[in-house]
Amino acid sequence: MPNLSDTLGALLKDIAASRVKADLFSRDASLEYFKDPVLRLFPVPRVEIRSADLELTFAVSAARENEVDETQIARVVVEQSAAALRHSLMLVPAKPSRKAEQLESLAAVLQDKRRDVEDEIESKLNTILQTNAATLVKQLTTTPASAVKTIGTSAQRILRTAVKEKRATIAFTSQLQNEVNERVQSWAEAAGQAIREALARAKAEAFAVDLAVTKDELLNVNEKAIARVKVTVEIQNYEWVESEDEDGRSVSKLVAV
């Protein structure tokens, strides 16, 4: 079944093609005028289509709207972006000890504990998703800041546990906590945007409208059920102009007039 853009696009293409045909006719006519001593004094006729209005009647034959499992779609997006969060958190600047002056990435400070911490972050995110997916999705799509509270607090708890249980040497400073929160915030905003886009795509795919556009299809449609679409278009004219490129070579360009 055609959609509106396909149907109208085909008609608009025909308008452009008609303009081309008119110009080709003018070209042939101009040559004939040139050959004739009298016609040569006359202007060559040329059809100029500057704009066009197109009105199409159609009817909706059927419309389908399938259910979209928003939580499931969001869950997939979050799962796919979990690696980005892990990676971002591992780059948080951290001190190996309170006395240390040099900051290193969390990954460098954690050394062989890194994998365990990454796994725990992922596991915690999965737990949140499994137990409270709907709330997390709502937070991510509407108020990412509140998701920071949920995930940021968990991330900090995981790091603290890693320090304690695995005896990783790391100074848990307020700066580190702020960095963790900022990175979770950036991730939450990006994840929220990705979820909104995925939902919009899914909803668009779940919705379909079949149109009747041909005369035969519209023959038995009651007038009160007829829909209309009006399109106003302008035809953009271009002409070839000669110019020089950076090396002084002559080039031909199409320029809008």
């Binding site: 303009r19 829909a227 209309r228 399109v231 302008e234 953009q236 199409l254």
Partner: peptide
């Protein structure tokens, strides 16, 4: 844009 010849300026859809 160099090859486009049609510019859509306005679309109005009226649907019962």
């Amino acid at each position: 844009s160099r090859t486009a010849t049609i510019q859509v300026k306005e679309i109005t859809i009226t649907l019962p």
